[in-house]
Each structure stands twice: as structure tokens, then as C-alpha cells.
């Protein structure tokens, strides 16, 4: 309930912070990155996430934030500060997330956010990497008898406002000359409740979130059907502000390090045994030779810290997404038919 109120206020607060300019970039010094300097001084990475999407970011029974987005935050924190525990999770809504990032309320955003031209061009943001290649899907009740998206002419669809899903559905219906009635509710729990109570014929968002939502329904999951149609490309990624390229590099190469680790078979458990490796790629990755970390303004053991904290990209997937019953598909490594491909670390 409170989230509902704070989300609107959050956007306003962000706007006000921008007005007051309390977080104007400090003069370049040290690493040459205002954000990285601020992070080091603060001893904390402020990471914007949702906090309410199973598989991406949701506190477990111990109150520990779990999920792919949460682990992305941890990985970047481990790279920047050497200790993943120094991450501070900041809950954001679909509506206030960009303002929070723009105004400096958070250092980065890892909140199932789709990489689009508009967001990079208009919002002053940059997408450092994609942690989930997703697409818009539809979740319906089996009792409705709908089997494909094309059968949904005239349907009422529950969507969260301010998302790229909103635009994707609109495009899909326009393309297929069909009509729909949107029900736009900001709060995740409210909109899911509206769908379950039958206010909408379908609930639409990223297929990943639909799969995890369906999974979270427990025994009732069988009453829900995820339609096979994926109507748009939704690459979800980690976002930073424009104008701080050094910080952008830190976030981008953290992903590259996790992918390289997976390519080389380095895991959270066995990373120490690789410290004696003779493979030059591994030696550079783990900071034994070359000054890769220094080039980023970090410790040379940055990638070692990342792998020690969250493991490689595959481990992150297995830990968070596999339990939700979603196959890795195109999110696999390029060597296994997926899209994740890291440039060389040298």
C-alpha cells in the first residue's frame, strides 16, 4: 500500500532532487568517474531494483534479496568495492525508476528494464549489458479457452503503466487490426490481483515475469496458461546515467567477466583453484597478470571478487531462474546457441 503512495511521490521527489541538484556530479578526481568516486567514498553501491518480482528481486524468508537483478547488483558491487555485501538495494517502481537514476538516487538500475532507443536517446541513460533476453507474452486463464494471442480480439488486458509492454501490446494490436481494453494499474500486487479476480482476460508483461508469477501461484499454476506467442523483443539490462563512461565500463565489464568465467568453466566454488592456471586469458581475468582492473579504476582482483561473490553468468541463472521452470534458451552462452558473448578481456 505504501509503495503505491511513495511511487508517485518518488517521481516527484526525484524531480525535486533534480531541481535542487543535490547530487550534481562532483569534480572529476581519483578514478575520473564521479559515480565510482562517490561509491568508494560512500562504501556502498546504491542499486535500484523492483523488490517484488520473483526470480529477479524478491526478499526470501530470511529477508535476503534474491534474484537475477539482485545478483547483478551484487556482482557490480563486488567489482567496485570487493565485497558484495556492500550493496544497498533501493526499491523502485516502473514509474519512478528512471527519475531515481537520473537524479542520482541510485548508482545503477537493474530492474527488468528494456533497452530501447527512446530510453537511451531521450532519458539520458545507457544500457551497459543485457542480463535477460526477454519478450512480451500473455498469461490467460485456461478456463477462457484461449490458445493463441491472435484469438484475443476484444480482450481486456492488465498492464503496468509506464512500461515498454504497454507500447508493445499497442503495436501488436495495431498490426493485427484488433482491439483491446487496457487496465493500467501501477502496483504489481494490485494488477496481479485484478487479473486473478477476472477483471482482465489476460495479464501481459515480460514472459519471464509471467512465468515466475505463474510459478509463484503454487498449485493454482495449472489453471493459468502462458500463451506461446512472444510479441516483442525485450532485452532487459543494467542501466547507468549518461556522462560517466568510466562507471559504465565497470558495469559492462562485470558482465563480460561473468561470461568469460562461464566460458572457462570457472565457478564460485572452484575459482581459487584457477589462481594457479597457466591460461593467459584466465590469468588476466583473475588479475594475476596484466592491469585489467587498474584500467577500469578498480582493484586488479575485481573479477575474482565478482566470481567469488555471485559465480559466473550460468550460476546466476541456475540459482534464480531455473527454479521458476524457465529454460535458458537464447540466454545461453554463444557457444551453446545463445546470445551472451563477451569481448576479450585484454
Amino acid at each position: 500500500m505504501m509503495r503505491l503512495i511513495t511511487s508517485g511521490a518518488g517521481a516527484l521527489l526525484g524531480g525535486l532532487m533534480m531541481l535542487a541538484g543535490v547530487t550534481g556530479p562532483a569534480a572529476a578526481q581519483g578514478t575520473g568517474s564521479a559515480t565510482l568516486d562517490a561509491v568508494k567514498t560512500r562504501g556502498q553501491v546504491l542499486c535500484g531494483m523492483s523488490g517484488s518480482v520473483p526470480g529477479f528481486s524478491l526478499p526470501d524468508s530470511q529477508g535476503v534479496m534474491r534474484g537475477l537483478d539482485a545478483d547483478t547488483c551484487r556482482a557490480v558491487t563486488a567489482a567496485a568495492l570487493g565485497d558484495a555485501a556492500k550493496v544497498k538495494f533501493v526499491a523502485t517502481t516502473t514509474q519512478n525508476r528512471f527519475t531515481a537514476l537520473q537524479s542520482g538516487e541510485v548508482d545503477m538500475l537493474s530492474r527488468s528494464t528494456t533497452w530501447t532507443l527512446g530510453r537511451e536517446g531521450n532519458l539520458g541513460l545507457m544500457f551497459a549489458w543485457v542480463n535477460y533476453y526477454d519478450g512480451t507474452g500473455f498469461l490467460v486463464k485456461k478456463s477462457s479457452g484461449v490458445k493463441a494471442a491472435k484469438e484475443m480480439d476484444g480482450a481486456t488486458i492488465c498492464v503496468q503503466p509506464g512500461t515498454s509492454t504497454e507500447l508493445a501490446i499497442n503495436d501488436y494490436y495495431r498490426l493485427n487490426k484488433m482491439k483491446f481494453t487496457p487496465i493500467l494499474i501501477q502496483d504489481q500486487a494490485e494488477i496481479q490481483g485484478a487479473f486473478l479476480s477476472g477483471r482482465c482476460d489476460a495479464y501481459s508483461t515480460d514472459a519471464s515475469a509471467l512465468a515466475t508469477f505463474r510459478f509463484s501461484q503454487g498449485p493454482k499454476a495449472d489453471e493459468l496458461l502462458l500463451l506461446p506467442d512472444i510479441i516483442s523483443k525485450e532485452p532487459l539490462g543494467a542501466v547507468v546515467r549518461k556522462g560517466d563512461d568510466k562507471w559504465f565500463d565497470v558495469v559492462r565489464w562485470t558482465f563480460a567477466a561473468m561470461i568469460t568465467a562461464e566460458e572457462k568453466g570457472i565457478t564460485q566454488a572452484n575459482v581459487e583453484s584457477f589462481l594457479t592456471s597457466t591460461d593467459p586469458d584466465i590469468r588476466r581475468l583473475l588479475g594475476i597478470e596484466g592491469d585489467m582492473g587498474k584500467a577500469l579504476g578498480l582493484d586488479n582482483k575485481w573479477a575474482f571478487n565478482v566470481i567469488k561473490a555471485v559465480g559466473n553468468l550460468g550460476e546466476m541463472w541456475d540459482r534464480n531462474i531455473t527454479p521458476m521452470g524457465v529454460p535458458r534458451g537464447i540466454n545461453n552462452l554463444w557457444t551453446k546457441g545463445g546470445l551472451q558473448y563477451a569481448p576479450p578481456l585484454r
Partner: peptide
């Protein structure tokens, strides 16, 4: 409020 919120989110023109 709802429509302006969506607009500012899609266009990024918060202020």
C-alpha cells in the same frame, strides 16, 4: 495523474 505519469515515463520528461 495516471496519464501524465505514463507520458513522463515514456517520454522521460518528468519535470
Amino acid at each position: 495523474v495516471s496519464i501524465a505519469n505514463t507520458t513522463l515515463n515514456q517520454t522521460g520528461q518528468a519535470i
